[in-house]
Design a binder for these strands. Structure first.
Lengths: 258, 258
DNA sequence: CGTACCGTTGAGCAGGCTCAACCGCTGTGG
DNA sequence: CCACAGCGGTTGAGCCTGCTCAACGGTACG
């Protein structure tokens, strides 16, 4: 089933509809990553695309808006498009035979998704908040990349960045204690949003059970871990979707790869 | 410390020194991956590089031979080269503050490694068996890619493939039971070597403790899991470095993502 | 033949899972 | 307007499995 119809869905009221920190929301697709080369040890996310490259991609792309809880595509279906997130948050997951769900990644602004294997998507992708996406026809995009090595190079940077992130997640998941995993997860959310979010507020767009299946924990374990983080004074949670680090030292110590 | 000196080390006698299944060992660096596009649903590893591309890379590369247990480079050190494995097996790992070691990946023929972040390597890489590597100066390689989009595209395929593999490993690690993790790991080793290895023999070049830190288990848990796989008649182990699946149905059932 | 390294095996402990009940909010229908 | 059902999250009790610590065995090497 193609899932990109415009079935009007109740907007998920919890999440603000305002654009999140895109300085130039209408200038076309954007990618962000930590590049290969030396950048003064900053290890910060950098905008990869020049204006020319953005508008080149924009000329191939369709800009889409989707409400929360929409399926963008399903695992195993034929891959026809590659997507770039302009705004909002999505999850990429796989349902295992046992019925358990493994969230492979959360996708934010300037992330790319839809890279196929053997002509098929490998994961299912759903929006968590309302999102804005750029949708690019895969054949045309690949053709463009083959004729624009500089642009292609930025894609290599981005994909390599995702590879590193996924490895980092593997480290998170390999921890035993739920509290430590959650702390590392929160820190990764924090890093993502650091630029705009001057305060130490962490925005948590996804549900507890999404976090659980991302961290390879049970929903209950996530719940207990959040309570413990709060009880021990490391983190303060305001509602389900916001957190603030109270004791940075102890928090970092916990989140530092055990 | 640069670690590529030719310090003569005792060759690890356990591992045969013969080349492993490289049909054209002298034709230059080679990459293998499952490509994006439809390939008849085979999902098989494909040689990515044309002869021209291989010889182009060969002209940049230095061919190196290293004995087992050699460090190719260390975490955090300045990244000057990218490597392609011609033959042999290596591990890429990170040592955590607690002293625990996390093996991020095992590297086989036609794999690439050394992709830097911010000018520095992110993992340490050591040879497990004697290896043959192609070493390419990173600046020159990147420059070449920027002028050869077709070649660059093959690198995108390869890196994307690694990304998918790493996600798959994340699923493995997120399992709770040691036996299941081990079974999935053995199956991934099996898939790697399938082409040449007509029989169902699985070659296990790495040590138990390497497997443990790859799977996020204790060494003891791996040991017990191998014993149980054997006791229950799923897999037969001949020595430490070889296995054979006896009961394919039950083995696959166990290894199928629970 | 002793030493060292790696793997095996055992005992006890800790932490996460499962099952189950409960809470609070939301959206629905009478 | 209120009662109810549904969903997501919290909390509790008991079980299971992998971890830790520790001792032992087998093989390679000096």
């Amino acid at each position: 089933m193609r899932s990109l119809g415009h079935r009007p869905l109740t907007q998920h009221a919890k999440h603000r509809d305002t654009p999140r920190g895109l300085a130039f929301p209408d200038e076309g697709p954007s990618l962000r990553a930590v590049p290969f080369g030396p950048g003064g040890g900053s290890r910060e996310l950098v905008r990869l695309l020049s204006e020319r490259q953005q508008s080149k991609l924009a000329s191939l792309a369709t800009r889409l808006r989707l409400p929360a809880r929409m399926t963008v595509y399903r695992e195993e279906s034929i891959a026809e498009w590659i997507f770039i997130v302009a705004d909002g948050v999505l999850k990429s997951f796989r349902d295992l035979p046992s019925g358990k769900r493994r969230v492979m990644a959360f996708l934010f602004s300037d992330d790319i998704f839809g890279l196929a294997q053997d002509g098929h998507y490998v994961n299912t992708v759903q929006s968590i908040t309302p999102v804005t996406l750029y949708r690019l026809p895969i054949e045309i995009l690949l053709g463009t990349l083959r004729h624009d090595p500089e642009l292609q190079f930025q894609f290599i940077c981005k994909i390599t960045h995702e590879l590193r992130e996924t490895m980092q997640q593997k480290i998170i998941v390999s921890r035993r204690d739920a509290m430590g995993r959650l702390a590392m997860f929160l820190r990764s959310l924090e890093r993502r949003a650091d630029r705009r979010n001057g305060t130490s507020h962490i925005d948590i767009p996804m549900s507890r059970s999404d976090i659980a299946s991302y961290l390879g924990l049970s929903l209950e374990a996530v719940s207990r871990a959040t309570r413990r983080l709060e009880r021990e004074g490391l983190v303060q949670f305001s509602g389900l979707h916001e957190a603030r680090v109270l004791n940075r030292v102890r928090f970092d110590k916990l989140a530092t790869e055990l």
